[in-house]
Design a binder for these strands. Structure first.
Length: 369
DNA sequence: TTCCGGAGTT
DNA sequence: AACTCCGGAA
C-alpha cells in the first residue's frame, strides 16, 4: 500500500537499479575514482569546483605526488601550495585546503573528520564537499546535490519551481536521499553526477540514451527543454531614495526626466539616492542643491513608499519642503524641464508608478497652501 | 576586450 | 542572499 500522505511522487526502486547498472559501464575512468582515500577524494572535489575534468586531472596527479597526505600538505609552506595550484584559479580553494589541513593536524589528531557535521566545520568544505567525502570515501548514506544532480531531478520530477528556491532544494535533497540504495551511496551519487555530465546535459540531453528515461516526468510531459526552470530574476538591489514635494503659492515643483535612460521623459518629484551615512532629509537638501541649485527647507515627512521594479527595490522617503528664498529660479542639471503645477494638473502628466501612488495620496489628503 | 553565467561556500 | 572569480560568449 502506498503511503497516504506521501510527500511527493518518487521514482521506484528500479530508478536506482537502472542508474547503477548504467554507471558500471558508462563511468569514465578518472584518477580519483581509483582511490577511497578521503584526503584524495577531498582534493579532487575541491579542484573540480568550477573546473573541468580534463583540466583537473594533471593537477590532481601532481598534487598528490607533492602532498600525498594531510600531514605533508599541512607542513608545506603556503607558497608551495599556491604554486602547485597555479593555473587552476580560485586560489582561496587552495588556501582553505591548506588551512583545513593544518587544523586537522593541530586539533583533530591528523585524521579527517569522519562525520558530515565534522567535515562542515573545516574551511572551504560546505554541503557539497562534505556529502561527497562522506558518501564516496566513507560510503555513508548521505545525499549529494551538485548542479548536475539538481538538473537531473528537476527533470525526473518535472519540477516547476526554480531549483534555486529553498523549497525546491529541500525536495531534491529529499529525493536524492530516499533513493540511495542502502550501502551504495558512493556509487549512486557518482552515478547521478555522471548522468548529469554525460547524458542529462544542460542543452541537448540524450534522452534516447538515458538509462532512467522511463522514470522521467519531464520527458513524459515534453518539458525537458524547460527544466530546470530558470530563476525568476537577477538579484535585486535595494535603493533608498528621497523625494520632495516642494510647494509655493499652492503649486508643486515637478521635473521632467532626461530623454535617455531609466524612465526617460517621465515627470517626477525632485530628489535622489541617499549617499552612504546620509539621512533622507540630508539627501533631499543636497539633491535640490545639486540638481536645481535651490536651497530648500525640508519639512515634515509625508510618507514612505515602497516600490519594486526590475532589479531594484526602492524605498522612497517623501517630504514636504519649501524654498528658503522663493524668488530663486531652479537650474536644469538632471532634468529636461521643470514646472510649477496645480495639484489637479498632476493627473494629466506621466509619472513613474511610485510617484503616481504618492500623487494619489496627496489628492486624498490635500496640499497645504 | 568586456560581459555574464556558473557552482560552490559563507 | 551575497560573494567569489574564472572562462566562454559576445
Amino acid at each position: 500500500m502506498p503511503e497516504k500522505n506521501a510527500p511527493q511522487k518518487l521514482p521506484s526502486k528500479d530508478f536506482s537499479r537502472s542508474l547503477l547498472r548504467w554507471y558500471e559501464e558508462a563511468a569514465r575512468d578518472l584518477p580519483w575514482r581509483r582511490t577511497s582515500d578521503p584526503y584524495a577524494i577531498w582534493a579532487s572535489e575541491i579542484m573540480l569546483q568550477q573546473t573541468q575534468v580534463k583540466t583537473v586531472i594533471p593537477y590532481f596527479l601532481r598534487w598528490l605526488a607533492a602532498f600525498p597526505n594531510i600531514s605533508s600538505l599541512a607542513g608545506a609552506p603556503l607558497d608551495d601550495v599556491l604554486k602547485m595550484w597555479e593555473g587552476l584559479g580560485y586560489y582561496s580553494r587552495a588556501r582553505n585546503m591548506h588551512k583545513a589541513a593544518k587544523e586537522i593536524m593541530d586539533k583533530l589528531d591528523g585524521r579527517m573528520p569522519r562525520t558530515y557535521k565534522g567535515l562542515l566545520e573545516l574551511p572551504g568544505i560546505g554541503a557539497y564537499t562534505a556529502g561527497a567525502v562522506c558518501s564516496i570515501a566513507y560510503n555513508q548514506d548521505v545525499p549529494l546535490v551538485d548542479a548536475n544532480v539538481k538538473r537531473v531531478f528537476a527533470r525526473i520530477l518535472d519540477m516547476e519551481k526554480p531549483v534555486e528556491q529553498t523549497a525546491a532544494a529541500r525536495e531534491i535533497r529529499g529525493a536524492a536521499e530516499s533513493l540511495i540504495p542502502s550501502g551504495k551511496a558512493g556509487l549512486f551519487n557518482q552515478a547521478l553526477m555522471e548522468l548529469g555530465a554525460l547524458v542529462c546535459t544542460p542543452k541537448n540531453p540524450d534522452c534516447a540514451g538515458c538509462p532512467v528515461s522511463l522514470h522521467c516526468l519531464a520527458l513524459k510531459e515534453q518539458t525537458v527543454d524547460s527544466r530546470p526552470v530558470l530563476p525568476p530574476k537577477k538579484k535585486t538591489q535595494a535603493l533608498e531614495v528621497s523625494a520632495g514635494v516642494c510647494v509655493r503659492d499652492g503649486k508643486i515643483l515637478i521635473q521632467k526626466r532626461l530623454p535617455k535612460g531609466l524612465m526617460a521623459g517621465l515627470w517626477e518629484f525632485p530628489g535622489g539616492k541617499l549617499n552612504s551615512g546620509e539621512s533622507p532629509e540630508q539627501a533631499l537638501v543636497r539633491e535640490f542643491a545639486e540638481e536645481l541649485e535651490i536651497d530648500i527647507q525640508c519639512g515634515e515627512k509625508i510618507t514612505v513608499i515602497q516600490h519594486a521594479y526590475t532589479r531594484f527595490r526602492v524605498r522612497l522617503h517623501v517630504f514636504w519642503c519649501s524654498m528658503k528664498e522663493p524668488a530663486q529660479t531652479p537650474a536644469l542639471h538632471a532634468a529636461e524641464e521643470i514646472r510649477w503645477v496645480l495639484p489637479k494638473e498632476l493627473d494629466g502628466l506621466a509619472f513613474p508608478s511610485a510617484d503616481r501612488r504618492l500623487i494619489q495620496m496627496l489628492m486624498k489628503d490635500g496640499v497645504p497652501v
